[in-house]
Design a protein around this nucleic acid. Structure first.
Lengths: 178, 178
DNA sequence: AGCATTTACTAGGTATCCCAAGTAAATTGT
DNA sequence: ACAATTTACTTGGGATACCTAGTAAATGCT
């Protein structure tokens, strides 16, 4: 879709004004923050997707490939992938279906657990994830359109939010033992 | 789906470490920031959706209803809705299809432009959007799980990002003439 | 006036996400 | 040992979002 033409005013700032005018001042800031994340997500997703599309990938597919590429054997049970990616098991099923059709991963029986299925990265899959990562870094992440300081600050704020939402139980916020 | 059980470590902080270890330090911060927004979006969306679901709405539907409720006549051409919501025209078509089936909006011919279709808020639609807004404010936005200061700061950072991405051409960042 | 272009929507198809329900294998409890 | 429960995955279906292509009406240009 993309920006047809820029709106004259920030629609979220406008919505916030509406909220306050309607007497919902105590909810206005959160409404604005949530809306901002929704919209930022849309922008970021479409930028990432446009880089990935020529490579036959999507964000969801790349996430799974990347997760596999970071494991020792390039293999993981479906359930582990679901947990790590924090997506529904059925979503993993369908993403793996398509990746398998493209020969980027294959399914294998789990050696000891008869219920489990392993997703295994193929050689083609590993090549692809490396290409895609390089492209993303070059075309998006090294020129994100956000000042460095904003990037870091936002990541910290969202880390607190994610933690408060039960995403993870970190020992420390940002250890970074440098 | 949702938080099965919290992960022991922040997966995004871990990914950032991987990025740096692989020599992509110059892309690591943006990667982490983008991933954070992706995940935060997922959390926020699911919280909003769970409140809206009992009311027979979704975020996308409510956005359209709310947009209509803020207009003078509770009516807007499809194309205007698409521009204001910043979603693809075909998405508006399908959302309106379903809202119309639920009798929350109806389509009308545009009085002067034969090409255009007006989406009109029905009485039921107006009632519904008010219920949903009240529910969202009470159950989500007044207890967002983010400190007030973080909320405001993040909204400002994302406003800069949205503006840099061409979303809007604001005269001033945050006028707020109070 | 008349043809070409632009604008506004819709239709069909793909991808992703979720949920609910179902199958099969492993684990638990008695 | 064996029944009940839990865990792992798939299937089927709904919702949202996008793209491509097509129709119809309005606008622009000569």
């Amino acid at each position: 879709m993309s920006p047809a033409s820029p709106l004259p005013m920030d629609p979220i700032a406008e919505a916030k004004r509406q909220w306050i005018a309607h007497g919902w001042a105590d909810a206005a800031d959160a409404m604005a923050a949530f809306s901002s994340v929704m919209r930022a997500h849309q922008i970021m997703y479409s930028r990432v997707d446009s880089v990935l599309k020529p490579l036959g990938l999507s964000y969801a597919r790349l996430e799974l490939l990347r997760l596999l590429s970071f494991t020792r054997d390039g293999a993981l049970p479906m359930a582990s992938a679901s947990a790590r990616l924090q997506v529904h098991p059925t979503s993993v099923t369908s993403v793996v279906d398509r990746l398998e059709k493209d020969l980027l991963v294959r399914r294998e029986a789990h050696p000891t657990d008869g219920r489990a299925t392993l997703v295994v990265l193929t050689v083609a899959g590993r090549t692809r994830v490396e290409e895609a990562t390089a492209a993303l870094n070059a075309e998006v992440f090294t020129q994100p359109g956000i000042p460095q300081a904003d990037l870091v600050q936002m990541t910290q704020i969202l880390a607190r939010f994610r933690q408060a939402s039960g995403d993870f139980t970190a020992p420390v916020q940002y250890p970074d033992p440098l």
